[in-house]
Amino acid sequence: MFRLEARSSTPAWFNLALPLLAIAIALLLCSGLIAVAGAGVVEAYGVMLSASLGDSYAITETLVRAAPMIFTGLAVAIAFRAKFWNIGAEGQLLAGAVASCAVGAIPMPGYLAMLLMALVGAAAGALVALVPATLRVKFKVDDVVSSLLLNSVIYYALMALIEGPWKDTFSGYPISPPIEDSANFPVLIEGTRLHLGVIVALIAAPLCWFLIARTTLGFKIRVTGENPEAARYGGINVQRVLLSTALLSGALAGLAGVGEVGGVHFQVMSDISPGYGYSGIVVAMLARLNPLGVVPAAIFLAAVMTGAEAMSRATGVPAFLSDVIQGTALLAMLVALLFTAYRIRRVGAS
């Protein structure tokens, strides 16, 4: 017989061990699905690994995919630290994409265009995030529900735009007109898609860590998240902290959209994000809400995504497996988090 017993403290190595454990469990569970699909498990995972991290080109592709998830992961990690339950990174990403695409289509010098795209895209994401935060602060509306539902609102607004007034007249497809060539983010390594936005994402992570760990705003975010009552008693304006957190979180998610427009697609289409906003939640949880942990977590998920496509081509296992791995990894992580507060103890049968 086993039972759970409360822990008085959590060992530091758990921060690393728990996500690895969760990932291992997810891969183990999904190997069953691979077997059911009629492929060799070792072979399938081998293809996934070599296609995502096997050579330098594969690595750059994985990093390109990781960039938006680093941004959305950071957005979610910071929001969740304050217990602002931002499930709306997807919508904020789309808003950032639309806004930056509109700016990028205006002819102007390249670097000015890129800077403005980033600023406007971040602002658009921040404004979207402000909606659920304001509803919560002013009217106590549940932020999980409002931020989640807002994703659909933004998505269909985007669809209405690209099916209607913003439809690319040249191609006739439901996609927006492309941004100016000069506004395309520079490619860092010739022959790859590794663009400037990836570097910005990699720099954003330590900056967010610094914000949370070393600034008074970060302190207020942490305290407000853990105990808003004590924060208020201690003289912190809890409402203002929540709104600031929302702006910051939305801006980061908006930047994910900016990177996709400026560095990958150069225009907006309906499937510009394969759920990067939702993946951000998985990334943030695997990272245990630590901005530095967001980078490896995002790279892992990106590797699974790029790898799954190659695996699908090579073995016939559907690429949807990557979604299953993501989902099971999140569930495994949520269960694993139990062990930060409890230990399992064996007791004799009574």
Partner: peptide
């Protein structure tokens, strides 16, 4: 009201004057 139980003790001790 007084403390933030999940954060380090030092954080609670400096909270009002951070």
């Amino acid at each position: 009201t007084g403390l933030v139980t999940n954060l380090p003790l030092a954080d609670s001790m400096v909270l009002p004057r951070i």
